[in-house]
Amino acid sequence: NKEHILAQKEVLTPIEYEHYVKHLFDIGEITKELYIELSS
């Protein structure tokens, strides 16, 4: 869920976080809207 993803932002580097969010989007775990929101 969104809270879990945002928690990852605390422990990952910005680049790792971007890759993580992109991966979730690629596998269909999150919607495009959520992907855009989380990567901003």
Results as ranks from 00 to 15, higher is better:
2 K>T: 09
30 I>N: 00
2 K>H: 04
17 Y>R: 01
35 Y>N: 01
9 K>E: 03
3 E>S: 14
19 H>L: 15
18 E>A: 14
13 T>Q: 06
10 E>D: 14
3 E>M: 11
10 E>N: 08
17 Y>W: 09
8 Q>F: 10
38 L>V: 09
26 D>F: 07
33 E>A: 13
5 I>D: 01
2 K>F: 14
34 L>V: 13
4 H>Q: 12
31 T>R: 03
31 T>I: 04
6 L>D: 03
33 E>G: 08
36 I>M: 15
30 I>F: 01
15 I>E: 10
10 E>M: 09
38 L>Y: 06
33 E>T: 07
7 A>G: 11
22 K>G: 06
5 I>P: 02
32 K>P: 10
12 L>S: 03
40 S>W: 14
15 I>R: 09
34 L>I: 05
24 L>P: 00
33 E>V: 07
10 E>Q: 11
37 E>Y: 13
10 E>A: 10
1 N>P: 06
36 I>S: 11
34 L>G: 04
21 V>T: 04
12 L>V: 04
21 V>Q: 00
14 P>A: 13
21 V>K: 02
25 F>S: 02
36 I>P: 01
2 K>E: 04
28 G>I: 01
28 G>F: 04
7 A>F: 05
37 E>F: 12
7 A>V: 06
36 I>N: 09
19 H>S: 14
11 V>G: 08
7 A>D: 05
12 L>I: 04
15 I>M: 15
16 E>W: 03
24 L>F: 03
16 E>H: 04
37 E>W: 12
18 E>T: 12
1 N>A: 05
17 Y>F: 13
36 I>F: 07
27 I>V: 15
38 L>P: 00
33 E>H: 05
30 I>V: 05
11 V>I: 14
19 H>P: 02
26 D>H: 13
13 T>L: 09
25 F>T: 02
23 H>G: 04
17 Y>E: 00
6 L>P: 02
30 I>R: 00
32 K>Y: 15
36 I>E: 04
13 T>H: 08
38 L>T: 02
10 E>W: 08
7 A>S: 07
9 K>S: 05
23 H>F: 13
33 E>K: 07
7 A>P: 03
8 Q>G: 03
29 E>I: 13
2 K>I: 11
38 L>R: 00
6 L>Y: 06
37 E>S: 09
40 S>T: 12
1 N>I: 15
13 T>R: 05
39 S>R: 12
24 L>W: 03
30 I>Q: 00
14 P>W: 09
11 V>N: 09
27 I>Y: 08
26 D>L: 12
12 L>G: 02
4 H>L: 12
39 S>K: 11
36 I>H: 15
32 K>N: 13
3 E>R: 06
35 Y>Q: 03
9 K>C: 04
4 H>G: 10
16 E>L: 06
13 T>V: 05
4 H>A: 09
28 G>K: 03
26 D>N: 09
16 E>R: 04
15 I>Y: 08
1 N>K: 10
19 H>C: 07
29 E>F: 13
21 V>D: 00
18 E>Q: 08
2 K>N: 06
32 K>G: 10
35 Y>W: 14
7 A>K: 06
6 L>W: 05
10 E>T: 08
18 E>W: 15
13 T>W: 05
22 K>Y: 14
2 K>M: 12
28 G>R: 04
25 F>P: 00
